[in-house]
């Protein structure tokens, strides 16, 4: 037994020792999840506009990826993870639509009426001046609102391509559509955002 296996056995008492390959897989998955989790959370937050729900969706996506696709190649993890996450976001919207209809039926206020401030309560770890921080917050709020207004498929294509940095093939896999569709959705999304966020345009 080598050193790494020994460490694994000590750190996880009562669990089966499955060797260095399992340990290596765990490390790779940990590295992958640590790399994508913060961007994934922000993408989910923009998608559902609810912090707690977004955290739950990201956790579900992590668990499903590890449970069902840990044996797949490392290159496939990102598209698979985002596919699970996007499916989760879509399911969440479907449930919300049903819930809101029920709430309206019983004369209750819809949850969409809540004002969501994506940046509120977030401290500035970069230590910027308040006016600089405010400017950045306002820019993100505008961007977030504009992205949220996009049709679902355009929003997914834009966030996966621009925010997450997936290529066209990876985005197509994550969205479950053709590469041609990704290009169309992405192009339309950028066009819409240009119109809404003119001050971001290069001079």
């Amino acid at each position: 037994m080598d050193v790494s296996t020994t460490v694994f056995a000590v750190s996880c008492p009562g669990t089966p020792i499955t060797g260095t390959r399992a340990l290596q897989k765990e490390r790779q998955l940990n590295q992958f999840l640590a790399e994508v989790e913060r961007r994934a959370l922000r993408i989910a937050e923009i998608g559902v506009r609810d912090r707690d729900e977004a955290l739950d969706l990201v956790q579900d996506a992590m668990i499903k990826l590890v449970r069902n696709y840990s044996e797949r190649s490392h290159e496939e993890w990102a598209p698979l993870f985002y596919r699970i996450l996007q499916n989760g976001v879509r399911d969440w919207h479907r449930r919300q639509a049903v819930r809101n209809r029920v709430m309206v039926w019983f004369g209750r206020k819809s949850s969409d009426d809540n004002d969501y401030d994506a940046i509120a309560a977030a401290p500035d770890p970069a230590g910027r001046a308040p006016d600089e921080e405010l400017q950045s917050s306002q820019a993100m709020q505008r961007l977030e609102a504009a992205v949220h207004e996009l049709p679902t498929r355009q929003r997914e294509a834009f966030m996966l391509r621009t925010f997450e940095g997936l290529d066209v093939a990876g985005t197509a896999m994550a969205m479950g559509c053709s590469q041609g569709s990704v290009k169309t959705h992405y192009s339309r999304a950028v066009h819409s955002l240009r119109e809404q966020l003119e001050d971001h345009r290069p001079e």
Partner: peptide
């Protein structure tokens, strides 16, 4: 905005990752 995630959310992400692993 990703860099500005607060400690509470980062902690929750960390716990989620370990739950997944």
């Amino acid at each position: 905005s990703v860099d500005e995630l607060d400690a509470a959310r980062l902690s929750r992400l960390n716990r989620s990752r370990h739950a997944a692993l």
